[in-house]
Nucleic acid binder design. Structure first.
Lengths: 229, 229
DNA sequence: CTGCAAAAGATTGTTGACAATAAACAATGA
DNA sequence: TCATTGTTTATTGTCAACAATCTTTTGCAG
């Protein structure tokens, strides 16, 4: 298989985007999809060869990934896809809860009818997926629902932060226990959140968003505080 | 003036740390201090020559800085120290408020007597600085006070996020109006925060932290929402 | 066979050179 | 005089080679 970065289209693309950013996105994709698993080392030579470029842009891309927390670099040893410990995952849940609460509060004060409709549509689709027990339909909708709320909140930096946190959490091994009734419970919370948003009740929306995230956290780590590791 | 990166010590240092990270810290310092101002372009050749290295590590360092939001890169044009608009600064204030609230909540549940003493000492020193009207003493103490709370909270990722947000906000032109009585008011809030922490009253600590940040925001932008630009 | 030491190999860190692009400037015509 | 086009210069994007470091293998003594 030839996974080169479009050498044919290269001439057109290269004008508006550097190889570095293309490679960074490609690496993010590989990590997201699982082509690169937590703990894997990124071999610069191999990657450069595989993508049909030299090591320079690959190294630059890795430096960006390092800062965004997706990989960590050990001098003279290489860059490794980060492994998220239980403890770190728990920390990220707390942060996500705080950021989502903010998103809810901000959005409640400015949400439009159109946005409410959009969110309600997602909730309805998730409801169908939950009824049929289709987790592979529910899950991406769930992601998009949360993303939409953060995006609608209008705080650009908040959006990029949430995206970053979300990417990092993906590195965490344990998937949320897909308990049978979990989808319906989760979606009921979604409905309440949209209600609060529509009512422009900022405090309630914030609290519901926070609880929604912390409930996921509890499902993984139990009701008490941070796990040892 | 020779601002080379210690070519003498280089040999020793290079073993445990790459030039890239040294340069990134140096650039962060230059931005922090104001040697590089918002909007300035970072000339790769000039920087490389000044630091006595080649362009490679400089470029890698810039990619890290880009991801952390301190600079932005325009393809084929160069990397520029980011300019923070009023709007973005306001967004960052909101985020900081949410993160600090989390820090307060977390710390309240686990603060030690020793940490309370430490915080109280800082408040006392700030009180003295406020009495004498010494802003240049008050300000760094103020920073350390907030940093300490975040650090004591025990959430590592939260600490790095707050540091990052703080750095970014430094790029914002308008300094907080140093109104005459401002320091004393601010420090009274600090005292209340420590009280809430000592009482292990998480909700109250969270709310006080949030209000404390949002009050700074109001001082800059007024009581209503986000400024246009 | 095991443990250690030294050499060979692989990989990262760094550099200088070349190619591609954008900015600055000069020349031309209206 | 001004706008436009062509040319030169400066700067960034990319690459391939070299140096430093780490890992693995091999050889040898016990």
């Amino acid at each position: 298989m030839d996974t080169t970065l479009d050498p044919g289209l290269g001439l057109r693309i290269r004008r508006t985007e550097s190889l570095t950013s293309l490679i960074r996105r490609e690496l993010e994709r590989m990590i997201e999809v699982g082509e690169l698993k937590a703990g894997d080392r990124l071999n610069e030579n191999a990657l450069a060869a595989k993508l049909g470029v030299s090591r320079g842009p690959v190294r630059e891309a890795c430096r960006g990934l390092e800062q965004s927390g997706l990989v960590h670099v050990i001098v003279n040893r290489g860059v490794f896809v980060r492994e998220i410990s239980n403890r770190e995952a728990a920390e990220l849940y707390d942060i996500r809860a705080a950021l989502y609460a903010l998103a809810g509060r901000l959005l409640a004060s400015k949400i439009t009818k159109k946005q409410v409709t959009e969110l309600r549509r997602m909730v309805r689709e998730m409801e169908e997926a939950a009824d049929k027990g289709e987790l592979n339909v529910f899950y991406p909708l769930n992601v998009r629902f949360h993303e939409a709320i953060v995006q609608f909140s209008g705080n650009g930096r908040l959006l990029s932060m949430c995206t970053s946190v979300h990417r990092e959490m993906h590195l965490f091994r344990r998937r949320t226990l897909d308990m049978p009734g979990r989808m319906k419970i989760s979606n009921a919370e979604h409905a309440s959140i949209v209600d609060a948003l529509e009512a422009k009740h900022g405090d309630r929306a914030a609290r519901l968003m926070e609880d929604h995230v912390l409930k996921s956290r509890e499902l993984l780590f139990g009701p008490l505080g941070t796990p040892a590791d």
